[in-house]
Amino acid sequence: MEHEHIVTKFDKNLDKIKTSIVEMGGLVGLQLNDATAVLATFDAAEVERIKTYDRIVNGLNKDIHDRAEILIIRRQPMALDLRQTLVPINIAGELERIGDHAKSTAKRAHIVQGAAALDMIGAMSAVVQAMLADVLRAYVDGDIELAAKVRKRDEEVDALNKQLISSVIETLSRLPENAECLIHITLISRNFERIGDHICNIARYVHQIATGEDLKASV
């Protein structure tokens, strides 16, 4: 966006929405990171702390709604501005769900302690965290190429998920007594796979903001 609005407050209002999204994304990223860490070394207090992220994320989500509402009332945004106002509401929704998945992951930490598949979970987590960082950058810069790359990278997550599931199936037949742990590993893996999908959606929204084209509807 090279051109500034004639009304400078307009730019400030739009920037505030953007900042809130970035803040929310950062928080969710941190939550993901912490949830992954707590999988490796369980700490009940840390799990409780990770759960509390949720409230802050929800607060930010409400913030974004309010800002969008006020901006529509005050400025009647058109075209790009309208998308920059409306689409972040959806992005915030996706981020919130990522946060939910991170929480769900952390809650399973005590069961999966020391599991062999945690390496692969770690790898998945690294990929989605990188994707999240990238998609946030793409959102801030309106970079649709970066957003496309992020969408592409989801395949890595899907592949890792598949790989993990087949390895879990294989282990299950070998060590049926570990079933509970393995099921939770599978669910965690599924969490990350879902997180990848949400990030993909965000990447699509980034594309929609920049071009007005809705990839979900057209593909």
């Binding site: 051109h3 609005h5 058109m78 790009l80 998308r83 071009t211």
Partner: peptide
């Protein structure tokens, strides 16, 4: 025109930007 204008001048005008 009002959601996805093709021309940047249109976009700048309808969104109240300095074009």
């Amino acid at each position: 025109v009002f959601t996805t204008p093709a021309d940047e001048r249109t976009q700048n005008y309808i969104t109240g930007r300095i074009g």
